[in-house]
């Protein structure tokens, strides 16, 4: 790993309970994301990873507990303070969620137009560059419906990066990508962290990618409805006290030789 993350809490999730009506998705979540972390949220399908992400970006209110950014309470902030926080985020949704009535380039330009004062030509150059980063050069004028699912997803990542945000939230960026694109994506994440100092919060199941890039994580346990463990996924794989976590990180096989890590 290129550089040591600083020991400063960027995001703190405090005693969080998430619920839909009477159905409690997860309770007592409590963890920290440090600055420049590549933080993954892991867990079985349907355990509440996307829901946790929606709480962290303020699209859903916690039933209990709070989310703090750099020690400031985001959950209790008023509308204006929240907007100020949100400007520092970039979000990629599980479905891509590109604006379907705009081309890929327009999707990326729109947030830049809204939040900066630069010229049209510069905005276009930025949009083209971001699309090239995710391997979509030449597709600038396509509409989301005209490109494949994986391409939608990559364009969604490009849009999330549009404003060079401090914190990037990516919901399953690797799902639906072929192994090579997936590897390129890992490389892109690492490079962005190192060059811009961004913090990443990523939902993913892909073990290869988790071990390649993540230095911190939280595991959501479906059985106990709370977090199973938090910490570096590599050490969780080998030393976690929670058996479900070890099983998950070892694809259900118990590790024989602990040296291989």
């Amino acid at each position: 790993m290129a550089s040591e993350p600083k020991e400063k809490a960027k995001i703190s999730v405090r005693d969080l309970t998430m619920a839909f009506g009477s159905f409690v998705v997860m309770k007592d979540l409590d963890f920290e994301v440090k600055e420049r972390d590549i933080f993954v949220i892991m867990g079985g399908s349907g355990c509440g990873k996307s829901t946790l992400l929606r709480h962290m970006i303020g699209l859903k209110e916690p039933r209990k507990g709070a989310i703090l950014y750099e020690g400031k309470n985001f959950t209790e902030a008023n509308e204006e303070e929240r907007l100020a926080f949100i400007r520092r985020f970039g979000v990629m949704y599980q479905s891509g969620a590109l604006w379907s009535s705009m081309t890929l380039a327009e999707n990326i330009s729109m947030p830049i137009e809204e939040h900066t004062q630069i010229s049209k030509a510069e905005i276009r150059d930025l949009a083209y560059y971001k699309l090239a980063l995710v391997g979509l050069s030449g597709y600038e004028d396509y509409y989301p419906a005209q490109v494949s699912g994986g391409m939608n997803k990559r364009a969604g990542i490009a849009r999330a990066m549009a404003l060079d945000p401090e914190i990037l939230f990516l919901d399953e960026p690797g799902a639906g990508l072929d192994p090579l694109s997936s590897q390129r994506l890992d490389e892109l994440i690492l490079r962005l962290r190192d060059s811009l100092g961004s913090t990443f919060v990523i939902v993913t199941h892909e073990l290869a990618s988790i071990f390649a890039i993540a230095n911190n994580s939280v595991f959501l346990d479906t059985d106990t409805r709370t977090q199973g463990a938090t910490g570096d996924p590599k050490s969780l794989r080998d030393h976690s006290e929670n058996e479900t976590v070890r099983m998950f990180l070892n694809r259900g096989e118990t590790p024989e030789d602990e040296e291989s890590a």
């Binding site: 907007l83 985020f89 979000v91 969620a97 809204e114 849009r159």
Partner: peptide, 12 residues
């Protein structure tokens, strides 16, 4: 399609 969520998180 979560496009409205996306608008919100880009500050629109």
């Amino acid at each position: 399609n979560q496009e409205i969520d996306a608008l919100k998180t880009f500050g629109f």
